[in-house]
């Protein structure tokens, strides 16, 4: 190896460039936001928002609760008039399908499909924490009124 022949100026230049590149890459990652604006995710957000008009009264009556696993659950079917029960069931099923797709799409949009479970866990915790007073929430396996 002929290290004796290398010029100090160009070496320090290389090291500086490398360092700057590394710092840029790290900071870009550290302050990064997750990508949630893909067409698939935006479509899910929109349908979930529209469905909320139907679900909100069910949350308020306690028929539907915010489950610990990032889904919603029909926990008290008797609180829904019989005529509307099938509709409530369908709304819960559709909501849970959309939520599963949302968690999967967020993980995939960020290049890490294996993050799906962690995305779900994060959302589950945030849904519970942000549930409105009076709504039913599930902690562990037990339900309580917030």
């Amino acid at each position: 190896m002929k290290f004796g022949s290398m010029q100090p100026r160009s070496l320090s230049g290389c090291v500086a460039a490398l360092f700057v590149g590394l710092v840029l890459a790290l900071s870009a990652h550290a302050q990064g936001n997750l990508e949630i604006d893909t067409p698939a995710i935006s479509a899910l957000r929109k349908t979930m928002q529209q469905r909320h008009a139907q679900l909100a009264p069910l949350y308020a009556s306690g028929a539907v609760g915010i489950a610990a696993d990032g889904t919603v659950s029909l926990r008290d079917a008797a609180a829904v008039p019989l005529a509307q029960r099938a509709q409530a069931n369908a709304a819960v099923a559709a909501e849970n399908a959309d939520r599963a797709a949302l968690y999967r799409e967020i993980a995939r949009a960020n290049g890490h499909p294996e993050w799906e479970a962690e995305v779900r866990r994060t959302f589950a915790q945030r849904w519970l924490e942000r549930a409105q007073p009076g709504w039913w929430v599930q902690q562990g396996t037990s339900w309580s009124r917030k």
């Binding site: 997750l34 949630i36 957000r45 967020i106 994060t122 945030r126 942000r130």
Partner: peptide
Amino acid sequence: AEKAADRIIDEV
């Protein structure tokens, strides 16, 4: 992820 969740929950 928490920030993203909050943004989506706000919206939904």
